[in-house]
């Protein structure tokens, strides 16, 4: 889900080809060590998005190489992306996804990072409310222990969210990390790393 949304988000910034998308994603999350996204996954996702009519592909001729396919967002894609921004993410997978939402929204003039945070916060508090309600009704300590773990996870997420909220302004000033200037051609070094 998050990779799909991330690709939509990155394409919302500007049309890109597959390799560029992969590079931009890595720049966003801080490298493969943090979030290892396989180039193949990028391509299969793009394919699915294209099939769903969320992106369109155009071929671009390159001097001294094969044609490159550049992907761009369709109107349906934009709508899908906006829906994603607006929705809160429940706590299980949110770390990555919320992060993506915030940083992508920062680079997306059509999106509102504050609104993303608000929505996320509301979602988390709702979960927390339910959990604490359940917690105060818990019959056994063992149940309470499990609930406590969940509650503490949310608390941690909320803390992170508050921090993100506090840093929004600063992040906006620094803008989204961009690709370093690279030589043309297929990067071999990266492939060799693997």
């Amino acid at each position: 889900m998050s990779v799909r949304a991330a690709i939509l988000g990155l394409l919302a910034q500007r049309p890109r080809h597959g390799y560029e998308l992969h590079e931009a994603f890595e720049a966003l999350v801080g490298g493969r060590a943090v979030w290892d996204l396989k180039p193949a996954q990028v391509y299969t996702t793009l394919q699915r998005l294209e099939e769903a009519g969320l992106v369109v592909r155009t071929a671009v001729r390159r001097v001294g190489g094969p044609d490159q396919h550049v992907f761009a967002l369709t109107e349906a894609g934009r709508a899908e992306l906006d829906r994603w921004y607006a929705e809160g993410v429940h706590s299980s997978h949110q770390r990555d996804e919320v992060f993506l939402k915030i940083v992508l929204a920062l680079g997306d003039e059509a999106a509102d990072a504050e609104a993303v945070i608000r929505a996320q916060r509301a979602t988390l508090y709702r979960d927390l409310h339910e959990l604490t309600t359940h917690r105060s009704e818990a019959a056994h300590l063992t149940q309470a222990m499990l609930l406590d773990k969940a509650i503490m996870h949310i608390e941690a997420d909320l803390r992170w969210l508050e921090m993100a909220d506090a840093r929004l302004h600063e992040m906006r000033r620094h803008a989204v990390p961009v690709l370093p200037e690279r030589r043309r051609g297929r990067p071999r070094a990266e492939a060799g790393d693997r």
Binding site: D127, E130, H134, A150
Partner: peptide, 12 residues
């Protein structure tokens, strides 16, 4: 939403 849903969402 019930707490059970919340728990599931948390992944617990």
């Amino acid at each position: 939403a019930s707490a059970r849903v919340a728990m599931e969402r948390v992944g617990l």
